[in-house]
Simulated scan of single mutants.
Amino acid sequence: MRALVCEQTVGLDGLAVREMADPEPGACHVRIAVAAAGVNFADLLMLEGRYQERPPLPFVPGLEIAGMIDKVGAGAIMGGVEPGQRVLAFLDHGGFAEKTLARAEDVIPIPDDVDDVTAAAIAITYGTAYGALSWRAQILPGEVLLVHGAAGGVGLAAVQVGKAMGAKVIATARGEQRAALAREHGADHALDSEDPDLRSRIKELTGGQGVDVVFDPVGGAMFDLSLRVIAWEGRIVVVGFASGDVPQIPANILLVKNASALGFFWGSYRKHDPGRLRESFEQIFDWLEKGRIRPHVSDVLPLDQGRDALSLVKERRSTGKVVVRVGDGASDPRPG
């Protein structure tokens, strides 16, 4: 099989497309013929040796895929998951390859009307948005949600999930074009994150009360802003640090506002509560079927251009999701 292989943890320069032997599933694993794989910021961290998980070299990056099960290991058959079944899967790594292995409990059947590219694009972003807002923030209908990085994959998902859960959504994104994309996908208000009056604009939109929930995959200055605009008993959900700046939280502000800062790492639920993670996709697929969420995929590139796909995310030249098309027959709703 062909795969995009990380041979050195030096970033994108350590990648090369290589021929490898097909992996064989062990106990409780399935092998999947990959149709499409989503690109994530975490892939970039892994390529630089800066992610929580550091697989031994050489390894194939890629944390989420859509494809078809073609072989099942002993003890891996679960209800509704069997050879020939189209599935999405969550991986430790290995997605950018023509075939990969996944634990049976990390595999979810794909509805017939969901194409491969969409399925590969929703696993981590919409799973993260749903878990952060439902499990951690426990957002309520009518509350005000502030989403940072709202034109990126997880931010745009949070805008849509927040609206589906009944929140009023204020989005921030870098530049008016990206802010416009957030509005197109449901944000009630979308602001330029580089606006020097951003704090006062948010306060104005909330009648001076501030926001009830913040979804923050950016960190840095955006987290500092969130502390200033969070309402009494508000919740800030820390999802990531795309800015590269991990903020230090002044506890006195949390105390004065009775506010909460909550961490959320979606991947940890694969270990600690896989059942809840799987169940969340019943709601996500239901929203998808009803048109209440609309995944935005800005770029689909073939496996040979996998490094270019990762570069789009690294250099912030994409919006929504970037997907690598691995299988020749991968279905894609986009024209052309």
Rank of each mutant, 00 (worst) to 15 (best):
F59A: 02
A120E: 06
W135D: 15
V246R: 12
V5M: 07
L312Q: 08
P25V: 05
N40C: 12
W287T: 01
Q52I: 07
K257L: 02
L225S: 04
R174A: 08
V237L: 00
I293T: 01
P58N: 01
K271N: 13
E64K: 12
C6G: 02
I170D: 00
V229C: 02
G80F: 11
L133S: 06
I65M: 03
S280Q: 13
A330K: 13
P335R: 13
T9P: 05
A242N: 09
W266H: 14
S311W: 13
L301V: 09
A36F: 13
E279A: 15
G240Y: 04
V114S: 04
Q177K: 09
A251E: 10
K71G: 14
K203L: 12
R235Y: 05
A259I: 07
V238S: 15
L133G: 11
S331F: 13
G153E: 05
I108H: 10
E282M: 11
P111I: 11
K203C: 00
Q8L: 08
S134P: 03
G67Q: 05
E289I: 03
V81H: 09
I170W: 02
G320K: 09
A16G: 04
G127P: 08
P295H: 05
V34K: 10
A121V: 06
Q8W: 04
L156R: 05
A21L: 11
A37E: 07
G11P: 07
F265H: 14
A33L: 12
G240Q: 03
L133M: 13
D216K: 00
Y130C: 06
C28V: 12
P274H: 10
E315Y: 12
E98I: 07
V72K: 01
A221G: 00
A16P: 02
V256D: 08
G14N: 06
A171W: 01
V117Y: 04
R103C: 12
Q209F: 01
R235K: 13
F285N: 03
W232R: 14
L301T: 12
E315G: 10
I139D: 10
Q85I: 09
D192H: 06
P111F: 10
L146V: 05
I293A: 00
D115N: 12
L140P: 00
A180Q: 14
S200P: 00
F241I: 08
A309Y: 02
A129F: 05
A190R: 04
P58V: 02
V34R: 06
D112N: 07
V30K: 09
G155F: 10
G207V: 00
Q305D: 15
D70Q: 03
A35S: 15
F96N: 08
A164I: 01
R276M: 08
R334H: 11
G14F: 05
A76I: 07
E194H: 02
T128L: 04
V214K: 02
L310M: 14
V246N: 01
G75T: 11
E184I: 00
D116L: 11
P302M: 12
R317N: 12
R316P: 03
G131W: 13
L12Q: 07
P302A: 08
A259F: 01
V297K: 05
G142H: 06
R278T: 14
Q248E: 15
E24A: 15
Y126G: 04
G336A: 14
L277E: 14
N40F: 07
G62L: 02
Q283V: 14
